[in-house]
């Protein structure tokens, strides 16, 4: 995959210029669209590998653009939002965004999110072993090793870890995790998640108070991060 094409849909010229410089210097090919309408046309025309979509667009809300794009576009979409407004972010994630960033964001962060979003689409063959900084998760064999040693996880802990690890880099919302692991009756019972995330951290993180693998997005959800 040389020079993957990226489509940026944002009406702020300065952000567009900055993203163009950053992405081009990281060997991406960049297309820019300044409105929802232009963006949808460009997405059809170039069929990019990834779309960066601003939620605040002049002609219509980015949420609508997202819904329209998602009716046929199945590559990753990363959403940009100005306010750290959990409701908006969760809505975008529910509508099919793969990830989000709040402006102002560091470009390093953006590039990392893009890499993992692109990786997600590349490794879709249910690779049953996930290897990450000394942590080896065998999804088929249902075992976890840390630095070669087997770690004992409860059934729920293992399910939670494997769902997160299988979606490496992708943010999974509280609702999504609760529904998939505990069932629809547990939606809203976020304290269950907190308990199991805390327990998992104690078992797999080097320092549970400075987590590097299981990252919290307060008010939104969790992501499993594996920095290669």
């Amino acid at each position: 995959m040389n020079n993957p094409e990226i489509l940026v849909i944002d009406d702020e010229q300065q952000i567009c210029r900055l993203l163009a410089i950053t992405l081009e210097s990281n060997d991406y090919k960049v297309h820019i669209a300044n409105s929802s309408r232009e963006g949808i046309i460009a997405a059809a025309q170039y069929s990019p590998e990834l779309i960066i979509l601003d939620i605040g667009l002049p002609d219509e809300s980015g949420h609508e653009t997202l819904t329209k794009l998602r009716s046929w576009f199945n590559k990753p979409i990363i959403v940009l939002s100005v306010l750290h407004d959990e409701l908006n972010i969760v809505k975008a994630l529910d509508n099919g965004a793969n990830d989000y960033l709040v402006k102002p964001f560091r470009t390093g962060e953006l590039l990392a999110r893009m890499r993992s979003a692109l990786r997600n689409t590349l490794v879709n063959d249910e690779s049953s072993i996930i290897n990450c900084e000394g942590l080896v998760i065998d999804l088929a064999g249902r075992s976890v090793r840390k630095d070669g040693e087997y770690i004992k996880l409860t059934a729920t802990e293992f399910t939670l870890l494997s769902v997160l690890a299988n979606n490496e880099g992708k943010i999974l919302t509280h609702q999504f995790l609760l529904r998939h692991i505990w069932g629809p009756g547990y939606i809203g019972q976020s304290q269950y998640l907190r308990v199991f995330i805390a327990q998992l951290r104690k078992k797999i993180e080097k320092d549970p108070n400075q987590p590097e693998l299981l990252i919290t997005a307060f008010g939104i959800g969790y992501r499993f991060v594996c920095n290669p």
Binding site: E86, S190, R194, A198, Q210, F218, G219
Partner: peptide, 17 residues
């Protein structure tokens, strides 16, 4: 207020980190 269950250890360490 958007209340949710808060793990103080997690929150304080997150702020400090």
């Amino acid at each position: 207020l958007k209340r949710d269950w808060c793990d103080m250890t997690e929150l304080v360490y997150d702020v400090v980190n």
